[in-house]
Design a protein around this nucleic acid. Structure first.
Lengths: 247, 247
DNA sequence: CACGGGAATATGTATAGACATATTGATACC
DNA sequence: GGTATCAATATGTCTATACATATTCCCGTG
């Protein structure tokens, strides 16, 4: 193997910064399968002579790849290509208003019910909290170009999100308001399919017995429940795009 | 404001490395809402006096937060807390075998049909490719503790994944084999709900007209189609957990 | 007031060197 | 053979410094 220290082994292209070129070069080898999962990536010292730069520079490239979970670094042992994440493919579930407007369709919103009350037993169970507190319960409907798009049924824990008391959910959908005002750390989703009962069928303007897609989402901030929501979509395809992460 | 340079303003805890403490400290202020979206984070020079370290160290902490999309850095302007990702919440769809075994249930697999043929028009449309080539078409069923869990209908482009010809899909499910052997760069999902027709109802051992959850997944490597798959689950809840990313 | 140009400034990249720390592998001892 | 020990080694963190680069801000000119 040549040990020349010239830099022109890199794709060059429009020459971004050096560490980025290194990162992309290694990323390419991994994604094309040239360096399969488990393969040991050359030591930092070898990479610095290969790319003709300092160790800090290759280290920065490798650190970013490690943060993106493409490689794994172990002291004394070396750096290895990670097994393609065992589980996973990643989906994003957009905010409904943003999703509809991004599609270039007109967004419509109707508040069906909104009440503020002390939490009852069913509310506490749904939020997964023990103590009694105040909640806001909201039912509403989203539409695109005048056609029903989804119905939403939401519970917000007012003890965890006191500022929600000042929001006007007759104007702004609760999901959109929350996304813009309340930071969260964890979310859990449950996706399922149901057939429409009479109330659902009426709200979505579909036939009774027609299939519907349901997303139940529970959102926390540091173990504190913020909100629980159920979204019901007519069963026609609901498309979501996911890309492999990589900075 | 005090300008003391002592380091004990940090949570300390079990004292990981300094840059990590800085990262966690800033992350905490963002997630608790102390520094809301749009807030300007102190300049690097202020942070180095606050934490009593060099600029490279605070820069490393900030770079990781930027890579995780928690903050945005702009030259000359400064560093700002990002608006909570406009859309989004992230879901992971695990490999079915891994999912079932992770739940501690016994995994079962039956190959229903497997054929290798030149692609016909329907195959090309489904894979989204123009040219004719060879494909593998597979139908199979996954079960957990002997109960049908999902049925899978898959098409693999043999031109893009020639090594699939040597795999034995009577033993290993195609999704699992692909995940372990074939690197991919992009995936697109389409989630929808249907009601079971007679064939589906029989395969999943449910009633005709019962709701089913459908996931259509298309996978590419650098714009090259690898495989297209449709998974049909009985409509009872299919649970997926998502965490806020953050390295 | 509009506009162009240049100075100020915050981040971005890169360096060499130093020391820390985890882990491996070999060696010596029982 | 089993086990404790120690040196070798690859990554991990940190510093001080230097220069690059993108923006913003201000100022002077038309």
């Amino acid at each position: 193997m040549s040990l020349s220290t010239d830099r022109d082994k890199l794709p060059a292209a429009d020459t971004p910064t050096l560490y980025k070129q290194i990162r992309l070069d290694i990323e390419r080898r991994i994604l094309t399968g040239e360096w399969p999962p488990g393969h040991r990536i050359p030591f930092e010292h070898q990479l610095m002579t290969r790319y003709g730069c300092s160790r800090m520079t290759v280290s920065k490239a490798l650190s970013e790849l490690a943060q993106a979970d493409l490689i794994e670094r172990r002291r004394r042992a070396g750096t290895f290509v990670r097994r393609p994440k065992f589980l996973s493919a990643v989906l994003t579930i957009p905010d409904i208003r943003a999703e509809i407007t991004a599609l270039g369709r007109s967004y419509g919103y109707q508040l069906i019910r909104c009440s503020r009350r002390a939490a009852n037993a069913a509310d506490r169970a749904r939020l997964g909290v023990r103590k009694t507190g105040k909640v806001i319960a909201i039912s509403c409907r989203h539409s695109a170009d005048g056609v029903p798009f989804a119905i939403e049924d939401r519970l917000i824990d007012l003890d965890a999100v006191p500022e929600a008391a000042r929001a006007d959910f007759a104007i702004e959908p609760p999901g959109t308001w929350l996304l813009h005002h309340v930071p969260w750390t964890e979310a859990e989703h449950s996706i399922s399919a149901i057939v429409a009962d009479e109330e659902t069928a009426t709200a979505l303007d579909i036939a009774i017995g027609a299939p519907c897609l349901v997303i139940d989402r529970h959102t926390w901030r540091s173990a504190r429940t913020l909100t629980a929501v159920r979204l019901v979509y007519p069963g026609e395809s609901h498309k979501l795009v996911a890309r492999f992460k990589g900075g």
